[in-house]
Design a protein around this nucleic acid. Sequence first.
DNA 1: CTGAAAGCGCTAACAG
DNA 2: CTGTTAGCGCTTTCAG
Lengths: 328, 328
Amino acid sequence: MADVARTAGVSVATVSKVVNNKDGISPARTQHVRQVIADLGYEASLGAQSLRSGKSGVLGMLVAEFEPFSTELLKGAGAAIKKTDYELLAYSGKGGSAQTPDWERKHLSRLSGTLIDGAVIVTPTGGESSFAIPVVAIDPHLGTSSLPTVRCDSYTGAVTATNHLLSLGHRRIGFLGGRQGLQSSTEREAGFRDAMAAAGVDVRPEYFGEGGYQPELSIEPATRILTSPQPPTAIFAANDLSAIQVINVAESLGLSVPEDLSVVGFDNVPDAALFRIPLTTMAQPLQEMGALALHMLDDIIAGRETVTNIIMPTHLVVRASCAPPTSP
Amino acid sequence: MADVARTAGVSVATVSKVVNNKDGISPARTQHVRQVIADLGYEASLGAQSLRSGKSGVLGMLVAEFEPFSTELLKGAGAAIKKTDYELLAYSGKGGSAQTPDWERKHLSRLSGTLIDGAVIVTPTGGESSFAIPVVAIDPHLGTSSLPTVRCDSYTGAVTATNHLLSLGHRRIGFLGGRQGLQSSTEREAGFRDAMAAAGVDVRPEYFGEGGYQPELSIEPATRILTSPQPPTAIFAANDLSAIQVINVAESLGLSVPEDLSVVGFDNVPDAALFRIPLTTMAQPLQEMGALALHMLDDIIAGRETVTNIIMPTHLVVRASCAPPTSP
DNA sequence: CTGAAAGCGCTAACAG
DNA sequence: CTGTTAGCGCTTTCAG
């Protein structure tokens, strides 16, 4: 900006006013400064600009990691942002899967105030529920219910998935859970247990594992479940990525899917369909959810009336990873 | 930070030193300040921090829009960032499909210096080739070849795709091109023309259209090609999203795919496989390309030796959208 | 209408 | 070892 001011022979204050379309600058000067700006290819520094003014015109999508789940949400948010006056910035820490719990608070305080005017946080793990800027959560932690939230109906979805397995004739069914504390994870387990109970089938402790929604963390519990004395004939995994890992583990153990083991996932991320054994799964409308969250955020910032708690339905997508059990 | 300083009874300078692990602070004070920071949940503002220091510890991925192509690249970059000491931020302007040419320069000058230490820019449209911070381009504009670049071998890919159609028996083949000026687009058209010439089949002007790689822009040219007096029996579209649009247009015109019309795309984004008529397409290793670009960027910033021009191979993925022509 | 000056949150000299 | 001072690029009073 200093360059522009010097070249145009005016003060930086004047340039600033031209950039921000403030009035109080003569048409001639305005014109001239605009020209210089164009010539020099100047763009205001987002950091400095919002540091000073407290507004950035940017909305953030905070994720732990860019994996299929969050990028689907991002596509939805990216489509939705076009209808607003904001730009969209997606941010992931470096932690990756080994995220500190509470990463969302860290990221948020790092970015809020100087970089983003509001944020959509994806599967936040902390219990916090009040932040410096407007926030909408997607699939949050259990205690966070006071935040405006978009989620899917995990409980009903889990019941449906379990019933699908049951209706195929399975009785020895395992469950690979998600991440401790996330509401979706708790609900999916509850749905599984209730559906089993309703069918009068008992659940065995040795058929339970926790994969944290992550492929790497799913190997050990999947292996343990599948190598138990009398292994299950089917497994319901709490998300697609861990379901895929279950299949990998099963095959490395010499089992065929779906002949020896049926597997059903949750989410319906693209990877589920693309996997070499197309995965039967409970679909969440992820892009739609991302778009809804972004619109909620926009509404909240603008002070518009808005729903604060959206629960989307799921539906069963039948592909190739499930079959009736072959042995009793 | 002022809060922290006040609560801890020290100056902001001291807090800053503690935050940045500078030495010259007594262990006791350091300990105490750390405690206060933890209690207050303080995180340094990224904007202010990098405004002052000129470093942010963040790498950017600049895209015109979050669509399947760029999000695949983003997944790769997200995986690669974990091996570096940087965090990753993805940024899309609000322009969407109606981006001003030159959006990458705008975004870059807005973010560089105060927010990111380097950037991967996806399908930049401008001719510029020198920026304030290190930059790696993915699939750039024709004139931008002086930038470190990652791309795929579009020419060979286009030849392969065209030959596939030819080998199926097609002779009346249309071509729906990409975006003016992008090197990939030019190469795909050249590959198509050369393959046709090599087979001794001539190309008809009325079978050519330009879809800008975008679904919305593909409707009109696709309609025009398919309603020409003697329509083609096959179309090669320069990317998957426009190929999918071609199929939509064809069906709305009463044509069946692949019976009446074969369609082959390019990219192999997840959507290609998920489309109701799974798309035959030329696959690019998108995630790998995103990861490579990020590593190149990291190397360049660190002053490490690195390749500056990577061209990845493509391969044909046969799905359901192509068949031999039924009528002569 | 225009510019000088103060200050956003932070870091980098430099004194003490 | 610690605090004071200056200033990153920008916006915003406030005088002129």
